[in-house]
Design a protein around this nucleic acid. Structure first.
Lengths: 346, 346
DNA sequence: GGGAGCGATGCAATCGCTTTCATCGAATAG
DNA sequence: CTATTCGATGAAAGCGATTGCATCGCTCCC
């Protein structure tokens, strides 16, 4: 009773003269096979006969067919898309890692949807929503979302991967390191170098706070007085250095080393210090974070904390692959650690 | 004959106890309206009655419904997604502009798919393909794709926007400026400052080449000898400065000003020069490009060429909006110009 | 008082694919 | 020589929304 009138057939015979973009069915008609076979050829070329495949290839060429991923994803209920949520594009500690991930994902046939969260929880939430609506395979985020959204994620088929951090109870899985430990190690390192009066530059972010916490605790445990501090906006950029350096000059007891939240800020401090006639590290030590490429290229080179972005990218890819294959996870937390790299600036 | 057993109805009645994520239909059943009404409520709340809307809202809350954008986009054949193609995330001249665009798009309800093209034409092509497959509303790219792909784009409903450049015959529309003119203006500016021996640092990219071309032509037209040159890899980064500076020191006739392809490289050269005991700009001038935030924050501040990223972002948004409303374009090329900003480094 | 007009909703076709199940001929086994 | 198996393909039922058209009360106006 739903049989359509056969009228369309003649028009369809005309082929590419119509205006609407060609569909799978058009290709199938052209290649004289069923649409199912074309679909198979596209997704799994091995299963169709050599000769049929050739015909299909020709038909695709001739019609200028572009698959409609929207329809495909809907039918198969998987999207081969991954969402990446970062606070900022510019001045980001994660850029290097993100770039690696995007590259690898693209290579493995995934598309990447990117979202800039800024520092707003709401923006993060709405981006997570959008990602879930698109049924992405995974959401990679440097921070958590709100609880409401967490439960949405939990109910969905989407894998939530939090990177650069290791929360007690991750929503999905977490790949990162302990920022508190990093702060602690920095304190020990500076103490071992004989520094007496460190100045901390911290941003108002959970991670920066965790590092500060670790530093404070350890530094005082080592018998020193609490260090001085400057607070800066997120993200921690080069340009903040002017204000921070001004803070320092104003102090009665001049610090002998500055602990920065990023290599860019460290670079800025070196520039400021030198412009003021101070020698780094003799008059003032400067310590970065993140081991950005510039830290090895600056004069003097910058002592920094390295986090293995490539390793994180690899683990993320592996996790997504496992998830796409429907497998389970051995562990919900992967600690990739960090390494303090001593260079010239401290 | 294909009538399904009515067994499912009782299970469905259970509501959220089932495992599969709730659909529009589930919400509709819960709210005791048709799925059409729920869809209307979601996309155009104004048309449904107040009281019905409240019931639907409650049902959505209760079921934890997340719209399936895949299905929606397919049915309406529009995606509200935009693809952005850039060469690199890190060290990109465009970062600032991209960040603005991503922000505005997200705000206007579009999602952004990002692709890293590197310098490979093939990568660009396959990313364009992927974007077309997802039926994105627009593709924003800093470079052109291959001809094969151009014709695919032309046949599709997708708007191709090329930014930071003004080709003779853009595939879709172009929003940018003339790099050759920029090179020419730089030459005039340096001549007016009395510089005699500029050294150009160019990357092997069409845009950099165009600037160089403009510079050479004008510089020689002003009666000078051809400038010296260093070639660097893309992207033009801070770290290249060491090699470039080494190039300069090796020369018999030392240049008196270095023209860089990016502010980061300019920053690097300043650092190198100072480390070698040279004063900038007295002993060596340094000129950047792109007017990144750092150029106003460096010591000395960097003379650079400003391109109005905000303006480009705005024009891009306007173009997409016009396109989404099905309107046509007044012009296929928009010249946003550029401004040379004189600071301390030259 | 009898349409016309309108606001709110439902019905059902449609978007372009994927995928299960059935089919069919040929090859292989017993 | 028949029964199985297997590889290649087709038929058709979804996937979960959107949207044109039809329906149904009402109010409004002459």
């Amino acid at each position: 009773m739903t049989k359509p009138p056969p009228a369309s057939s003649s028009a369809a015979e005309q082929g590419s003269s119509t205006n609407r973009p060609p569909t799978l069915t058009d290709v199938a008609r052209e290649a004289k096979v069923s649409s199912a076979t074309v679909s198979r050829f596209l997704n799994n070329p091995g299963v169709v006969a050599e000769e049929t495949g050739a015909r299909i290839r020709a038909a695709i060429e001739l019609t200028g067919y572009i698959p409609n991923a929207l329809a495909g994803d809907l039918a198969s209920s998987k999207s081969r898309m991954v969402a990446v949520l970062i606070p900022h594009l510019e001045h980001s500690l994660f850029n290097d890692m993100i770039e690696r991930m995007v590259g690898e994902m693209t290579a493995s046939g995934n598309n990447v949807m990117i979202g800039l969260t800024g520092t707003s929880r709401d923006r993060t939430d709405s981006l997570v929503r959008a990602a879930l609506a698109r049924r992405v395979d995974a959401i990679i985020s440097t921070g958590p979302a709100s609880e409401a959204v967490d439960s949405m994620v939990a109910r969905s088929r989407t894998l939530f991967i939090q990177v650069w951090e290791l929360p007690e109870e991750p929503v999905g899985i977490a790949i990162g390191f302990s920022h508190e430990d990093a702060g602690r190690d920095i304190a020990r390192f500076l103490a071992s170098r004989g520094y007496q009066r460190p100045h901390l530059v911290t941003a108002d972010s959970p991670r920066a706070q965790a590092r500060k916490q670790g530093f404070f605790t350890e530094w005082q445990a080592l018998g020193h007085a609490a260090p001085s501090e400057s607070i800066v906006d997120m993200p921690t950029r080069f340009g903040h250095a002017r204000r921070v350096f001004a803070d320092i000059r104003r102090m009665d007891e001049r610090p002998d080393v500055v602990v920065c939240g990023s290599d860019h800020l460290a670079q800025g401090l070196i520039v400021e210090a030198q412009a003021a006639g101070l020698r780094v590290p003799d008059d003032l030590g400067v310590l970065g974070f993140g081991n950005n490429a510039i830290s090895g290229e600056m004069r003097p080179t910058i002592t920094s904390v390295d986090v293995d972005g490539a390793r994180i990218a690899r683990e993320v890819m592996a996790a997504i692959a496992r998830h796409q294959e429907g497998k389970d996870f051995l562990s919900r937390k992967i600690d990739v650690g960090f390494r303090l790299i001593a260079r010239e600036s401290v």
